[in-house]
Simulated assay, not measured.
Amino acid sequence: MIKLSKRLQTIADLVTDGSRIADIGSDHALLPVYLVQSGKSPSAVAGELPDGPFLAAKKQTAEAGLKSVIQVRQGDGLSVLNPGEVDTVTIAGMGGSLMADILEAGWRSGKLAGVTELVLQPNVGEDLVRRWLISKGFVLQGEMILEEDGRIYEVLHAWSASHLKLNHDNEWVYQTSILSVDMEDETKTEWLYRMGPYLLRQPSELLTKKWQFELGKLSRICQQLTLSEAEESRGKEAQYRAEMKQIKEVLACLPTVKPSSS
């Protein structure tokens, strides 16, 4: 059986057993091949747009002897799908803005009809993906954070609200009371989107590490801004320092977080 990276294995583990999947931006089709080989998915669609990854996906599928159950299709985003032919969509390895655009285009064109599960791994801009999910009635069921090759990744797992039989919904997921900080609810909600409501409920060293890195980046930006005499720079510096203050406050209220005193 094909061996996946830690990042792709995390995604694969979240896919529901027995679901027909579509992997968008599938690259070498490693994820669909693994899911079918392992018996977790009966069939799959691997979507790619550039010629190179598309041909690589076709080769991988053929070498695995799975051409009859994995369809490799060339096209932009969810355009490769027919409504109702898959249960789960996975998208990984791209920015959150692009991912949200792909999902929105698929939603508007009806390509997500019948899709009940989404497993998404944005490289950056995770908050944009969370906002898209809630705007379309998808409810986060969990979030994972992992580190591989020096990079920290978040994986979001969501179900369509219309197919849920659970006792919580988006209102529960984004409950601001989980943050015991002196902020307006609107500001708390913003940080739930940015940091992840499940990740904040069960904080980890990796979550701390990710946001300490962000603090360092913002600090360096502020240092650069102090060298500028432009009035606009003063405003930006104040904005970034306020953001840093809020990050530190959120980290400080989490039980396992020990923010730097610098």
Rank of each mutant, 00 (worst) to 15 (best):
G125S: 09
L166W: 13
L140H: 00
A105M: 13
P197R: 06
V80W: 06
G95Q: 08
S219P: 04
L118N: 01
E186G: 01
S160M: 08
A252E: 13
A56F: 00
T10K: 12
E214C: 00
T187H: 04
G137R: 06
T208M: 07
L251Q: 11
K111V: 00
M183Y: 07
T256R: 12
E148Y: 07
R201C: 05
S26K: 01
H28C: 11
R194V: 10
L49A: 13
K258V: 05
D27P: 12
V80Q: 05
P83M: 13
Q239C: 06
D127R: 02
F213K: 12
L66F: 14
V80M: 11
D17L: 04
T88H: 05
G77E: 02
S43H: 11
L140C: 03
G65A: 03
W191M: 14
T88A: 09
K236I: 14
L179D: 11
A44E: 11
S180N: 09
G114R: 12
P255E: 09
A252N: 15
S162Q: 13
L146W: 00
S97C: 09
F213G: 04
L140A: 02
T90Y: 05
E184D: 14
L35T: 12
D185G: 01
K217T: 15
L128W: 04
L66S: 01
E143C: 03
G106H: 13
V115F: 14
G96K: 01
W107I: 02
D17I: 01
R20F: 15
L66I: 10
K258W: 09
N170W: 03
D185H: 02
C222P: 06
G196T: 10
E214K: 03
G235E: 15
Y240N: 04
N167C: 05
L8G: 01
M144D: 12
E243D: 12
A113C: 13
R108E: 10
L103R: 09
L199K: 01
K236G: 04
A105I: 03
E104H: 11
P83Q: 10
E85K: 07
E117Y: 00
K40F: 06
M94R: 04
H163N: 11
E143A: 05
V119P: 07
V36Y: 11
W172K: 02
T187G: 02
K59S: 12
L49S: 10
P197F: 09
